[in-house]
Simulated assay, not measured.
Amino acid sequence: MLTGGGLAVASASCRPSGGGATVDPGALPAGSVAGYSGEQLVNAALIMNAGAALGLSVRGQTIGVMTAMGESTLRVLDRGDLAGPDSRGLFQQRDNGAWGSYADRMDPTISATNFFRALQRVNGWETLSPTAAAHAVQRNADPNYYTRFWDPAGQVVAALTGVPVETLNPGGGALACSPDGGAGALPGVPLPPGAWTKPAIGPLTSVYGMRWGRPHNGIDIAPPCSSPIYAAASGTVVRAGPSSGYGNLIAVDHGGDVVTRYAHMYPGDVLTSVGQTVVAGQQIGRVGSYGDSTGCHLHFEVLRGGAFTDPLPFLTSVGVSVQ
């Protein structure tokens, strides 16, 4: 569904309203759901109930199930891995004092409760994509690692609760939500192929051209610190990391000699990697003030044929208004 300026309306599927759902662990599906069965479904139910006890929405609960799928296949593991040999339990929580005792980490309800409490401390987690929200807690080496588990998590949650799976935004593991799910926000659902959208939601604070005696090769959009940065269109990430005055820089090649660039993320707020394919509206970073910057903002550039071009008329030509 599209609205003016080529933006998708973030539907209720992005942030289900109301409280979470509780599950009776003794009344679970007898067979397999998305490849998970038996004790795995019991653990998913316990994760759901821990989230409900803290007042999380079904979407928040599903992020917990997704994370445990990625960390332990929904099994209480009494072992770690090379990256964390002391990791234990459903969420592979480390023995660093942050996650309680060994018994706490091995207890499905307590470990899930501690995961959700950490998630609630993440600024703006409700607007992050599910994989970015999980990564903010777990700090996996790959911020997009959990994306692949979003759809099976949604299927499991739907089977346990009766919530229609369509309301859990299938395919949306890497897509961010708007704060209110209302019209005119960035997409919580994928945009059609070839569509463009705003790279961030906030006031336009600086335009393309000469500034302070030197070229300013992009525009500045200034949402609050840590707000989502979105891929303006589908493409392939060709750069993602440190870049002198840019602080950190992401570049996305959209084909047809068009590249967009996104700057000033803090270390750890680059939520994509070189070679990743992204879609319009997918969160790829968080707004920061790193590098040559005097306050939190997104510096956004467009290159055509390798040369800088004014992003405002370019975005207007593809149906997007930043102002």
Rank of each mutant, 00 (worst) to 15 (best):
G241Y: 03
D142N: 15
G80I: 05
T197V: 14
R94V: 03
L303A: 13
S317M: 10
P152F: 04
L54D: 11
D220G: 12
C177A: 06
G64Y: 03
S317Y: 10
F308L: 10
G38W: 03
A103Y: 03
S32G: 04
G218C: 09
A232S: 15
P170F: 06
Q276R: 15
L28P: 13
I221C: 07
N217F: 07
Y266T: 04
S244G: 10
G18L: 00
P152H: 06
N123R: 12
G182R: 15
D24A: 07
V270T: 05
N169K: 07
T73N: 15
P16T: 13
R79P: 09
L191S: 15
T277D: 11
T236L: 05
G19T: 11
R117G: 02
D151R: 11
T236P: 00
P179K: 11
Y246C: 12
V156T: 09
G70Y: 12
G124K: 09
L175A: 02
A174Y: 01
T167R: 10
M69F: 05
D180A: 14
N217V: 08
A112Q: 08
V259Q: 08
L77Y: 02
L77N: 11
S227N: 03
P203V: 12
D220K: 14
Q276I: 04
A34H: 13
P190A: 07
G213T: 12
A30G: 14
A30S: 15
S178I: 05
P192S: 15
H264L: 06
T205D: 12
S243I: 02
V287A: 01
G84I: 00
I110Q: 10
N114A: 13
G154V: 12
G26D: 01
I63D: 02
S273C: 00
T127L: 00
R211V: 06
V278F: 02
Y246K: 03
G202P: 13
A263C: 11
G26Q: 01
G173N: 08
R105L: 07
G319N: 08
G124W: 08
V165Q: 15
G281A: 07
A159K: 11
I284H: 08
I284N: 06
D180G: 06
G89M: 02
N140S: 15
V318H: 07
P29E: 09
S243R: 09
Y290P: 11
R121P: 01
V259A: 00
A50T: 10
F314G: 05
H299M: 08
T294K: 05
P130S: 04
G209W: 11
G60E: 03
E39C: 00
A222N: 06
Y102C: 09
V42G: 08
